[in-house]
């Protein structure tokens, strides 16, 4: 009986994670309003991947859709985690940065375009290293600019997660929505293990990694604002709720004095775990 209910639920479910980046973007915008820009049929392939004998994707793994959110102008930028680990190269990075810049320019002309970024990304695409890094700096700049006018909402649904320079972008967003399948961290587990050794970070110990960087933990620490089920209508509703809140009174990244004091007075000799992280952020949760 319960098994049958599970199956029925699954069949009727509206998993967001199972959607492609393009489907995710379309599913968040008001029905019928979504229009893709610089899409696959414009064939903006990465010039660097084919030069290295790597099969490229026609949209370079970044989908930009313009449309309406609750009747207001919006742009959704979705990263396709399946293509090259959601890594950002020159073209995809430029699409994302430029879309956010155009949204900011709209606001300067009294068009209240808001932006949503769907993060599924390992960060810089190493095959385009410095151009990926440069584009990410431009994305940071654009988020800083746009978030003066309108909330920029980040969503990390999973299952790739959000790492590298794009985790910094996530940390600059006005609001961040995660699921239990999300992970958020600066450095990928394999890289930390390589750099610091297995005793410091065991990249094969999945429960350990999830306990530190998983969506539930990040939300409990106040590093994300909402923990939502993997359900498209629920995620969309949470997005609309945050947009309705307007700009946050104190963005997460503006708490430097507080965080600096907490870090300087904590016991940094003891190795970290999920509990010590929650303790560090305990009085750090936003009102």
């Amino acid at each position: 009986m319960s098994h049958r209910q599970d199956i029925t639920c699954l069949l009727q479910g509206h998993s967001f994670i199972e959607l492609s980046a393009r489907e995710r973007a379309h599913s968040l915008l008001d029905a019928g309003s979504s229009r893709e820009l610089a899409g696959p049929f414009d064939r903006q392939y990465s010039p660097w991947l084919s030069a290295q004998g790597i099969v490229a994707q026609a949209d370079d793994g970044v989908v930009i859709c313009k449309g309406l959110l609750d009747g207001q102008p919006a742009v959704v930028a979705a990263i396709e985690g399946g293509f090259q680990g959601g890594s950002l190269g020159e073209v995809g990075g430029a699409k994302l940065a430029c879309a956010l810049e155009l949204a900011a320019a709209d606001n300067r002309q009294s068009i209240p375009t808001r932006a949503v970024i769907l993060f599924e990304t390992g960060g810089v695409r190493l095959q385009e290293a410095n151009l990926g890094l440069a584009a990410i700096a431009e994305i940071h700049s654009a988020i800083a600019d746009l978030s003066r006018y309108q909330p920029v909402v980040g969503i990390i649904a999973g299952t790739v997660g959000c790492f590298g320079g794009m985790s910094i972008a996530a940390g600059m967003c006005s609001y961040l929505i995660v699921t239990r399948e999300a992970r958020l961290g600066l450095n990928g587990p394999q890289v930390i293990e390589q750099e610091a050794g297995m005793a410091e970070y065991d990249s094969r110990n999945r429960p350990f990694i999830w306990s530190l960087t998983g969506g539930e933990q990040r939300q409990a620490c106040g590093l994300a604002d909402a923990l939502v089920e993997d359900d498209t209508p629920l995620i969309r509703q949470q997005l609309l709720d945050f947009i309705a809140c307007g700009l946050p009174a104190e963005p997460r990244h503006r708490r430097s004095q507080h965080m600096l004091q907490r870090l300087l007075t904590m016991d940094s000799t003891t190795q970290a775990d999920a509990a010590s992280a929650r303790q560090l952020f305990q009085s750090g949760a936003r009102p």
Binding site: G185, L186, Y201, H253, R254, A272
Partner: peptide, 21 residues
């Protein structure tokens, strides 16, 4: 950037986001 367990647990991405912002 610093690679370590404390860094990830205590949100180094957010610290770097604060600086970039």
């Amino acid at each position: 950037q610093a690679y370590g367990r404390r860094e990830e647990a205590y949100g180094i991405h957010q610290a770097l986001a604060a600086a970039a912002a």
